[in-house]
Amino acid sequence: MAVAATTKTGARPSRAGRRLAVPAWTGTVPFLAYVGVFLLWPTGIVVVDSLKNPSGAWQLSNITELANPLVRGYFIGSFKLCLLSSVAGAVLGAILAYAVASGNPDGVVRRLYLAASGVLAQFGGVTLAFAFLVLIGPVGLLFHASWFYEFPWGIGLIYTYFQIPLMVLVFLPAIDGLKIQWREASENLGASAWQYWRYVGGPLLAPAFLGATLLLFANALSAFATIAAWENQIAYVVPQQISTALSSEVGLSNVNVADLLALGMIVMVAIVMTLYVLLQRRAARWLR
């Protein structure tokens, strides 16, 4: 069994370096094998299977299925939700990250917010949906709001709730990297607070901000737990439809639907990524 064999050696890649005859890169083989089996292989399966028909023959025309209005609807839904939650999360998260960063680096506030961010960014999922249902759901403690069930507002709010902490985690190092000398130098040269952010702080943070926003977008795209626990009557986004395709027992014909939707998601990420690279190139000329 190939799978079992990989981890036997996984623990000690350093062995390879001891003998001179073995080239140094062999030390990375366990890692590469692991990633190959559990990341690259599954991704490859998705790509290949989505272009085959259920009996296993190539069928490139599958791609056109992505243009099917029903399928397109899920992608548009996903896009709306991701855009809303990643932009809102990025902006609000950046503000919070700045407030955290400008305090004492060893202070309690920073520890609290970082620990909470670590939990809430990863932990959202099912729990979070419950929490919001209790707050503004049908028997909400705070209030009952009809927009809460309107896509994408209610679910967008919950997504933003876990996007903000993720933004804090990934953006905080960038803010910490703003040197105090830059602030002082611009002040010394006559800059007001606004001018500092307009000409110095803003442009310096732009590449990191863009990168973080993209990360948030990808995060929202793959989020499934929250929306699964929020509402299971209507499918709005791609992951829900993939879930349905995977679990419905209609037979083999459906398997490729999941693959195709998955491929669509990969394409979507690729598009966003390309966009990001182009923007990044403009924003960070000075980095190279």
């Binding site: 000398q181 830059w182 002082e184 130098a185 010394n188 006559g190 007001s192 310096l204």
Partner: peptide, 21 residues
């Protein structure tokens, strides 16, 4: 008078140039 209106030129120890300019 705030720093931005003092009209003083300052050279810092290091790394004070704006890296994106």
């Amino acid at each position: 008078v705030p720093a931005s209106r003092r009209d003083m030129g300052m050279v810092f120890q290091a790394y004070s140039l704006f890296p994106h300019m």
